[in-house]
């Protein structure tokens, strides 16, 4: 049965879809702020309960919203740029670069003062993420043109080089440094503070703000770069902007919470399934869906084995893996012509 809200192509009407998404976002954010290992009675707020709400849960939920939307939008934009539904923000090297920056920081300055760790680590991660993306970009640039295929291959090559360097550093790390690294490489929102929110909000907001107006350009790119140029798109400028803005948003996200798998990969798929492939709908929907997914996954991570926590990356991968398999299965049945 097809509901009235669905259009002929099997999509949900944009108005209905966004109303539902925003409602779901509110429910997700409020319930994520309401649940946790600590039982908060809103009618009789103790000092501790107030601290938990304002200094522990709220920054964590806000960080989850920011990071989730950054991963969602960047994933959608990069899938559009590469015309490849398997693209994820990690492809342009930003995630492995950020990990490299963080690992290098731990190896060089690990165990130093609190203030240095709190600010130095995210900064090192952001620098690493943007640095490796820039390197990928320069390698793929020939005569002021960026070859998208080369960009992908350069991303794969630099990812493995960064992985190798991380391997070297971890092989030379002692067990204590290893533990810090593992925490960071697994991805977790548990270090969330208002400070961390403040340091992540700028790159993420700038990145998302720069990606949103690219929706029409990404639509044109669906025809391929040559046809997009024939349609009137300044292809090189568009590619520059999408990669730079994605690197900024994902860099801001990764430097705050480490590597979180699957959000950037699956969220755009859900958005397209609901609303169709038009990036003017997919980009904002991916922002909202990414925020919902991460905030809910983090709430699950916080309460599943309370008072201990699961790494949030484990929850997103646990949800994402089977979902992705289902998507593959579904698309195999639907597509007639290869």
């Amino acid at each position: 049965m097809r509901s009235i809200a669905r259009t002929e192509a099997g999509r949900i009407a944009p108005g209905v879809g966004f109303a539902a998404l925003l409602a779901a976002l509110c429910v997700a954010a409020v319930s994520a702020a309401a649940v946790g290992a600590y039982t908060v009675n809103v009618l009789h707020l103790t000092d501790t309960a107030r601290t938990i709400l304002t200094d522990v849960r709220f920054p964590r939920v806000v960080l989850g919203l920011l990071v989730g939307s950054a991963l969602g939008v960047s994933g959608a934009a990069l899938q559009g740029l590469f015309r490849n539904p398997l693209a994820d923000p990690g492809l342009i090297g930003v995630s492995s670069g950020a990990s490299l920056g963080a690992v290098a920081f731990v190896a060089i300055a690990g165990g130093s003062a609190l203030a240095l760790t709190a600010f130095g680590m995210p900064l090192a991660a952001l620098a690493g993420g943007l640095g490796v993306t820039l390197a990928v970009w320069r390698i793929a640039r020939v005569d002021a043109r960026v070859e998208t295929a080369t960009l992908l291959l350069a991303g794969i090559a630099l990812n493995s080089i960064a992985g190798a360097i991380i391997g070297i550093v971890t092989a030379r790390s002692d067990d204590q440094q290893l533990r810090t690294l593992t925490f960071w490489l697994m991805g977790s929102l548990s270090a969330a503070t208002w400070q961390l929110v403040a340091s992540a909000v700028l790159p993420i907001a700038l990145g998302i703000a720069a990606l949103m107006p690219m929706a029409r350009n990404l639509n044109a790119l669906a025809l391929g770069e040559r046809d997009a140029f024939h349609l009137g798109l300044d292809v090189e400028r568009c590619k520059n902007r999408v990669v730079a803005a994605s690197a900024l948003a994902v860099g801001g996200a990764v430097c705050a919470v480490g590597g979180i798998a699957f959000v950037g990969l699956i969220v755009p798929h859900i958005a397209r399934m609901l609303l169709g492939p038009d990036h003017r709908l997919v980009l904002p929907a991916s922002a909202i869906l990414g925020a919902i997914l991460l905030v809910v996954a983090d709430a699950v991570a916080r309460v599943a084995i309370a008072p201990a926590e699961l790494p949030v990356g484990v929850v997103t991968a646990l949800v994402g893996g089977p979902f992705f398999l289902w998507l593959l299965f579904r698309s195999r049945r639907e597509v007639v012509r290869a």
């Binding site: 192509a9 559009g80 015309r83 490849n84 539904p85 029409r216 639509n219 044109a220 790119l221 669906a222 025809l223 391929g224 040559r226 046809d227 997009a228 024939h230 349609l231 009137g232 798109l233 397209r272 169709g276 492939p277 038009d278």
Partner: peptide, 25 residues
């Protein structure tokens, strides 16, 4: 305008949406 030899469109755009891309400029 240019009609190239490429007949591929990334993602499941409908025919009308593809024609609408012609108005990009």
């Amino acid at each position: 305008c240019v009609l190239s030899q490429s007949r591929s469109v990334g993602f499941a755009f409908t025919a009308r949406e593809v024609v609408a891309l012609g108005r990009y400029a």
